[in-house]
Simulated assay, not measured.
Amino acid sequence: MLNLRQLEILRAVVQYRTTIGAAERLGMSQPSISTAVRHIETVLGFKLFERVSNRLVPTDEALILLEESEPLFHLRDAVNQRAADLKAGRIGRVRVASTAELSEAILPRVIADYMTRHPQVQLALETRPLDSVLQTVENGLADVAFVIAAYERNALNYQTLATLRAVCLCSKDDPLARMSAVTARRLVERPMVGPQITNRIGLMISEAFRASGYDYRPNVETRFMNAAARIVREGWGITLVDELTAMTAMRPGLVVVPFEPALTFDLSAALPRGKVPSRQAQHFISAFEVHVGRRLEDLRASISGG
């Protein structure tokens, strides 16, 4: 019989004991409050207030109604708070997919910082090969995927977050370490570990070598760039990978040397085409982009300074 707004008016009049006080509390006019009270009494068929010395004293019936309706106000307040939390990005869910390189080089720090600021958010991270990562977004199993050197897919849109440069990771004792830049000719002379040509990054490296007149034939092939960088970290060979992956594997005794002619890879967020990302997904992408930008700034400063 009564809606929540009518109960809210009744509650305000009981609280302030005057229609003027209730009107100020609810942002209504005093005549509107008086009219609403009379209407409620007509609908219910009994009086809700007695006027005593210009004050409205609630009847027992009015107090019983308020007692019964109090859980409704708690529920409304909870819903409003939840809406405010969602708007501010304090709660929600984000499903993230990524290739192994980014899961190692960037995402741990991004996730740690993000969850510190948004402790009530539920976050899931899937680490897979590039094709599988893109499929998770296409199939609705992930809200966003972070990938390097993706290729066009009809069901996806890409948001470029950064452009990564190819660099050589090698020992400081290697002759390459004394060069300002390395070329395909220099790399084919050294024991090399690198991405296999059956994946996107390996194919791009192979094409860069071929453009310089050389074949890309690493002695050790890996599916992921971070695996190649880890092998060099353990003391064998050299590798050509993106700069974030190289710096993640750095240790004392290793150096990073730029590759020429410049070879770059787009670091992108893959999103389902035709679907607006959730607020939480948008916030996470922004946090990822900011972190990558800062990290690249520091890495490039260290390379040029070294």
Results as ranks from 00 to 15, higher is better:
64 I>H: 14
279 R>L: 15
156 L>G: 04
185 R>H: 14
222 T>D: 12
251 R>P: 07
269 A>E: 01
68 E>W: 09
280 Q>G: 08
159 Q>S: 13
152 E>L: 03
149 A>S: 14
42 T>F: 03
252 P>F: 09
74 H>T: 09
219 N>R: 15
105 A>K: 09
66 L>R: 09
92 G>K: 07
58 P>R: 01
258 P>N: 02
165 R>T: 02
291 H>Q: 11
147 V>I: 14
176 L>F: 15
272 P>R: 15
180 S>H: 09
100 A>T: 08
189 E>A: 09
54 N>L: 12
227 A>K: 00
22 A>K: 08
123 L>Q: 04
194 G>S: 07
87 K>E: 15
188 V>R: 03
260 E>A: 14
82 R>A: 14
181 A>L: 06
200 R>A: 12
244 L>Q: 09
60 D>I: 10
271 L>Y: 07
133 V>G: 02
120 Q>P: 01
133 V>W: 02
142 A>Y: 05
226 N>D: 12
31 P>Y: 06
164 L>E: 00
50 E>G: 02
79 V>G: 07
210 R>M: 11
174 D>K: 01
53 S>H: 13
102 L>V: 02
102 L>F: 06
235 G>K: 15
24 E>C: 03
244 L>F: 14
275 K>L: 13
34 S>W: 07
50 E>F: 12
300 R>V: 09
60 D>S: 10
97 A>G: 04
115 M>I: 09
163 T>K: 14
108 P>Y: 11
290 V>E: 10
98 S>I: 00
285 I>K: 01
204 M>C: 06
113 D>L: 06
122 Q>V: 14
135 Q>S: 14
147 V>W: 02
140 G>A: 13
97 A>T: 13
160 T>S: 04
68 E>V: 11
30 Q>W: 03
87 K>G: 01
290 V>K: 14
47 K>I: 08
87 K>I: 08
51 R>L: 11
283 H>G: 13
300 R>T: 08
94 V>N: 01
2 L>G: 02
230 R>S: 12
262 A>P: 04
304 S>G: 05
17 R>F: 01
181 A>G: 08
7 L>E: 10
105 A>Q: 04
98 S>A: 15
256 V>Y: 05
116 T>D: 13
295 R>M: 15
10 L>E: 00
245 T>G: 05
292 V>I: 13
15 Q>C: 06
37 V>Y: 02
161 L>T: 01
70 E>F: 13
129 P>I: 01
163 T>A: 10
173 D>N: 11
116 T>Y: 06
300 R>G: 04
187 L>V: 15
74 H>V: 06
49 F>H: 13
201 I>Q: 07
263 L>Q: 07
235 G>R: 09
154 N>H: 11
14 V>W: 04
295 R>I: 05
168 C>Y: 00
187 L>A: 01
65 L>H: 01
219 N>Y: 11
59 T>W: 08
159 Q>N: 07
56 L>S: 08
